[in-house]
Simulated assay, not measured.
Amino acid sequence: MAAWALQLHGVGNASAVELGSAMASIERDGRPWLTIDCGAEGLTAFEALYGRPPDAVFITHVHLDHVAGLERLFVSSYFDPQRRGRIRLYVPAPVVPLLQRRVGDYPNVLAEGGANFWDAFQLVPVSDAFWHDGLRLEVFPVRHHWPDTAFGLRLRGSVVWSGDTRPIPEMLARHADAGELIAHDCALHGNPSHTGLDDLEREYSDALRKRMLLYHYAGHADAATMVARGYRVARPGESWPLAEHTAMLALP
């Protein structure tokens, strides 16, 4: 049986540089299996830990603290014949045009010409689910800024990653019903695009909150306050063991 874990590369909000951009990898037997987002600080932490860039990335949304590392990933992949065009980017279909405008639309990605941004990657648009390495992962919309611009991810039975969001009890009722660890956006105080502690306590049951690991907060002081309130708080560089998944398997 494989050993699964959630490795945290960064856990902070866009201003908390010392905590790193929010980014994690689902590990299988100590190796990165699927990475979630690709911020600048998060990518640096990933490469320091594993000694190489990621092979497969799921993009939750296109705010720069979650996708700024893609430019550096383009360079490292495009100029490596063994990796060019082989890094899988799983991107929710409504996010693809936003990602193109954000990072792929520069008029001449290389000064000498002859290259398109997506030449370095295998871009895989996804809807409500996708297959990776023989397993089915679920994708669901979250509440961040504007409809159909941000999405969460579930490996059934193991982990749910909320992405940046307001509370989403209706989504977690469906996509976190198998005992998963729930990595959830949370700061000390909520705002129109992010969850706060008061939101958690108003919107979610005690049982659901006990499964949560909070990330995307503003700083160490906020983390200390959340811990004092009885919550588990993610720290950069931590690894959290995951239960064996119950995801659908591809037919042999």
Rank of each mutant, 00 (worst) to 15 (best):
1 M>A: 13
2 A>T: 14
3 A>K: 13
3 A>H: 13
4 W>G: 01
4 W>C: 05
9 H>I: 05
10 G>W: 12
15 S>R: 14
19 L>F: 05
21 S>L: 01
23 M>L: 05
31 R>I: 08
32 P>D: 03
36 I>F: 10
39 G>C: 01
44 T>C: 04
46 F>E: 03
48 A>K: 13
49 L>S: 07
50 Y>W: 13
52 R>M: 09
58 F>P: 02
61 H>E: 15
61 H>M: 10
62 V>L: 05
69 G>R: 05
70 L>P: 08
73 L>E: 07
74 F>G: 03
75 V>N: 03
79 F>Y: 15
82 Q>D: 12
82 Q>V: 00
87 I>Q: 07
88 R>T: 04
89 L>I: 07
91 V>E: 07
92 P>R: 04
95 V>H: 10
97 P>R: 06
100 Q>D: 15
103 V>H: 09
108 N>T: 06
110 L>T: 14
112 E>N: 03
114 G>R: 12
115 A>I: 11
117 F>C: 04
118 W>T: 06
119 D>T: 06
119 D>P: 05
121 F>E: 01
123 L>M: 15
124 V>D: 10
124 V>G: 02
126 V>S: 00
129 A>Q: 11
135 L>R: 10
137 L>W: 13
138 E>D: 15
139 V>R: 02
140 F>L: 06
141 P>H: 00
142 V>T: 09
146 W>E: 15
153 L>V: 02
153 L>C: 11
154 R>S: 07
155 L>E: 09
155 L>A: 06
156 R>D: 04
157 G>L: 04
163 G>P: 01
166 R>S: 04
167 P>N: 05
176 A>H: 02
180 E>S: 01
184 H>C: 03
184 H>E: 07
184 H>W: 06
185 D>L: 04
187 A>G: 15
189 H>V: 14
191 N>C: 09
191 N>H: 14
198 D>P: 00
200 L>E: 10
201 E>F: 00
201 E>N: 09
203 E>G: 01
206 D>Q: 02
206 D>Y: 08
207 A>F: 00
209 R>G: 06
211 R>D: 07
215 Y>D: 04
216 H>S: 14
218 A>W: 07
219 G>D: 12
221 A>W: 04
222 D>G: 08
225 T>S: 10
225 T>V: 14
231 Y>P: 09
231 Y>N: 13
235 R>H: 08
236 P>Y: 09
236 P>G: 13
238 E>T: 05
240 W>M: 09
243 A>P: 01
244 E>L: 09
249 L>T: 04
250 A>M: 11
252 P>R: 02
